[in-house]
Nucleic acid binder design. Structure first.
Lengths: 238, 238
DNA sequence: CATTTGAAATGATATGAATCAATAAAAAAA
DNA sequence: TTTTTTTATTGATTCATATCATTTCAAATG
């Protein structure tokens, strides 16, 4: 059989704690060429500017999204409180839960930088899963990886205190998104707070603590991790 | 083709917030008779007494578990802090993440009452998923339902305060596990606390608040919900 | 049945973290 | 550029919730 390894739109890569696809797993590699063609016939490309909303929690979901280029955040909203589920880089899928549950989006998504999306018809994806077990298994793998990440974050946010939670997120951003100890954040202090379930003021204060202790260096959106081990210790001790 | 609707070991039913299988979805209905036979050849039945540990987080996972009879809790542990992920009734699967991630258990499981388990070889399940897209899709549905439940709980525990969190859990237990407004709890106050991410003392105090306000009636493990609407309002206002 | 053990309940106290208020800085818009 | 708006920062205060200490109760166990 002829698989489409080469035609896959990109390698999937990790997102913060809750990544959307396992590292090094090309997303559609299990599809046959003709299946990929079927999928692509339903494909629409969309472009979003930084700050634009890609989908709204609760809205009817007839599509799932593949992030072709850019970075987005997925978040839960209710009244005025937001909780960011994940920072999601290019190569990942958005809205997989809608395949199974209620045909609505279970979270909102917003572009953190200019972002290009492939939008796929959810029923086409469903049919491909039904007819191709390898593809469906691949989807299961992606969702399972997301789940494990979510367990981790669930534990962090409910069991650790502020310093531990922020340490977790800084390590995660460095490791999974920027893949460097020295990077330019694409998210605000408020986002950092919504990632860690604390107030913006607390996030800022703890950032300052880390800076005062020479664990990180930071000015504006530029962040440099000076002492990874100390951060890991803070993460471990909660 | 000949499906096995009738041979399925049971209907899956919901678990607290994070249920393991969507209601009314017989778990293995998409398997062909011969596939079901293959699966059952790898099947081992195990019995656990109340309080016994079924699997340990971090341990090597060569099997997934189907709860034939009983109720269990799945929980994350780290040092001395536990977080209960779900109360899981008969008809659900345990350890689905291990199919995709690391071949280890990502949470521990303990029997809350005497429980019978079917243990299936993980590789057999994997192979069946690869060769049967309908079955794999069914698995995806189960995992996706779990995921949506977890989002809900994630939001509850990180954004609401104690009263809202406990209201959520009481409503959920009533609705998903006991399917009644009047039931005998199979979990301790400590479990209630570990479900809601609060101290045991706080859980007890809030239970008392609810009792004093005539929202619930409670003595020992017997709980009766008197005012569902008030509970829902408390849940909504956080 | 008495005894040990663990679970539940309650009050007093300490503390982590949110909220409020105000200012400073940066980014966007005019 | 100047103005407006948004984001970041800092300090003072309040509040929710954990922790500690003790007692009561229930359930195993010898």
């Amino acid at each position: 059989m002829e698989y489409i390894d080469e035609l896959t739109p990109g390698n999937s890569s990790g997102a913060i704690h809750c990544m959307k696809a396992p590292t090094d797993t090309p997303l559609f590699r299990r599809l046959l060429v003709e299946e990929m063609e079927t999928l692509n016939r339903s494909r629409i490309q969309l472009s979003f500017r930084k700050g634009e909303i890609i989908n709204k929690q609760g809205a009817f979901a007839s599509n799932i999204f593949f992030i072709k280029q850019g970075i987005v955040k997925t978040y839960l909203e209710n009244g005025n409180s937001n909780l960011i589920i994940a920072i999601v880089p290019a190569g990942s899928l958005i809205g997989l839960q809608s395949i199974s549950v209620d045909n609505v989006f279970h979270y909102s998504t917003k572009a953190l930088i200019d972002t290009d999306i492939y939008s796929y018809d959810i029923n086409v994806v469903k049919n491909l899963m039904n007819q191709n077990g390898l593809f469906a298994s691949e989807m299961t793998n992606i969702i399972n990886h997301n789940m494990v990440m979510l367990y981790d974050r669930f534990f962090s946010l409910t069991q650790k205190q502020l310093h531990g939670r922020l340490a977790d997120i800084i390590l995660c951003l460095s490791h999974k998104i920027y893949k460097s100890l020295d990077f330019e954040l694409c998210i605000s202090r408020k986002d950092l707070a919504e990632l860690t379930g604390m107030s913006t003021e607390s996030a800022i204060r703890i950032l300052k603590d880390f800076k005062d202790d020479h664990i990180i260096d930071m000015s504006g959106k530029r962040m440099k991790i000076l002492e990874v081990d100390k951060l890991k210790r803070i993460s471990a001790t909660g």
